[in-house]
Design a protein around this nucleic acid. Structure first.
Lengths: 268, 268
DNA sequence: CGTTCTTTTGACGAGAGTCAAGACTGGTGG
DNA sequence: CCACCAGTCTTGACTCTCGTCAAAAGAACG
């Protein structure tokens, strides 16, 4: 199911299957969704802040970001959406966009009507859970971005972002020599990390001088995965990519006496 | 349906109803959930990082935070959970916690088994959507925190957080003279904003000197709402609190020819 | 009424922002 | 094929916000 698949949504099905167990009917229903494909140039808006959205946007190729904007014109990227990801699945339940959606590079998208996704969620509980789970993973990523921006200085901050992207693009763990395409400019990188473009540039040079990354063109290479992970204090568990192990409900029945609540554990 | 209600989950029902339309059976099913109440001291862990969780935690009173932790011992709060909110509803679909959950003050919680919530979501599509929507609002809040931490300097950053809290506690818009209880210490506030406790203190004094806030005990008062909003560049739409207007699906049928995609709009 | 946590202040240093200018790139058209 | 041009990237010098260290005063709690 590559991106070259005649039905680009096949890729969406694969992604959901990686985290949720889907049956035949669910898969078929997803593939039957009718999306409209479009090409978008770099730096073009897809959704404006406050806009009422009627479609979810699936990224076939390219790179998309969610922006928060301030009066000063400064912008902060709050999330990025790689090829194969649904950019704003949450808009199905919250149609009014609180952030703008914009392409960072030339991008191909498929827009899927909310109404159809909503129908699916209502007919197939498994899909409702899968959609919710997908949103929840986004939430976990956002939480890590907060930790990253709020708690790390420039060098580990960019290192952490690169670790995350390497894992997200490859859908699994990183390894030595892994490389991934990074279609954003250094200015975009600045907007993601809460730094300035100038300082991003200086920090990239540092990372590169220390042999932690190599970059050129639109590709980043990580020669020594463990070393970068160490610098970034990265742990991939929040991405829920654990190989291809799909989520499965606990086999045990409802235990009437749940284990002792965590309250008893020592603080700090 | 106050917090003093004999069934603390009544408050949860009210919260969901504020954003999603729930029918009688759904409400009844929610109220029939059996949760276990407990008291927790300040600074005690409720959920540890990486722990497999089997219960969602509802906050009856007090204040809870989700923490990311770093090797250095530094901690970053990625979300806080006020009285009346479900702290980790997302754990129903992602049982492995990627952040720690800890009480910031003495707190009363009710723990609801995942299994029961999952059953509800599977039996009642409207509840599945409501849960998902609730998670999505949390996501929107996280996104604003990223904007806040990544894009604003100390003074507007704290101002923005206070605006958010005022709205969240009152479940609506702010107004002059509004006040809200803030049970966290300045150190906690530092962990929320990505600042140091010392700098938080200096900034609070600035805010206070400029008449933007008054604080004392565990209460913050906002004398002039619009002025604080101005400083913070705050807009409450992302909280989805629009009065008590519940979300309703668009009345229109599936239009076969959706409006022109947003792609045409000018960039930047 | 002492112990511990929190708040408050000051002096100093460092990481990151700002301003500005030059080098490099890829794309466009003559 | 070359020249141009707008958008990137790179670098240096200077500034300022915020972090660090330290100490004392104030609150909370038993």
């Amino acid at each position: 199911m590559s991106l070259a698949d005649p039905n680009p949504l096949a890729c969406f099905v694969e992604r959901l299957s990686g985290r949720s167990r889907l049956g035949g009917p669910e898969r078929a229903a997803l593939l039957a969704l009718n999306g409209r494909a479009s090409q978008i140039d770099a730096n073009r808006d897809i959704v404006l802040e406050r806009e009422k959205v009627r479609h979810a946007t699936f990224v076939v190729s390219g790179l998309i970001a969610s922006f928060g904007q301030m009066r000063s014109g400064q912008r902060q990227i709050v999330a990025i959406h790689l090829a194969g990801e649904m950019a704003n699945l949450h808009s199905v339940v919250i149609p009014e966009a609180s952030e703008a959606l914009q392409a960072l590079s030339a991008t191909t998208i498929v827009q899927v009507p909310h109404a159809e996704l909503r129908d699916l969620a209502e007919c197939y509980p498994a899909l409702a859970m899968a959609f919710w789970r997908e949103s929840a993973v986004r939430n976990a990523i956002a939480a890590q971005w907060i930790v990253n921006i709020g708690g790390r200085s420039a060098l580990p901050r960019i290192a952490h972002l690169y670790c995350e992207l390497a894992c997200r693009e490859h859908g699994g763990r990183g390894k030595d020599g892994i490389s991934f395409s990074f279609l954003a400019t250094q200015m975009h990188l600045a907007d993601m990390t809460g730094l300035t473009a100038v300082h991003v540039n200086r920090t990239l040079r540092q990372l590169s001088d220390q042999g932690l990354i190599r970059y050129g063109g639109r590709v980043v290479t990580i020669p020594d995965w463990n070393r970068l992970v160490e610098v970034a204090e990265f742990s991939s568990t929040y991405l829920q990519l654990s190989g291809t192990a799909p989520y499965s409900a606990p086999a045990a029945g409802r235990e009437p006496t749940p284990p002792a609540p965590a309250i008893m554990r020592a603080a700090h």
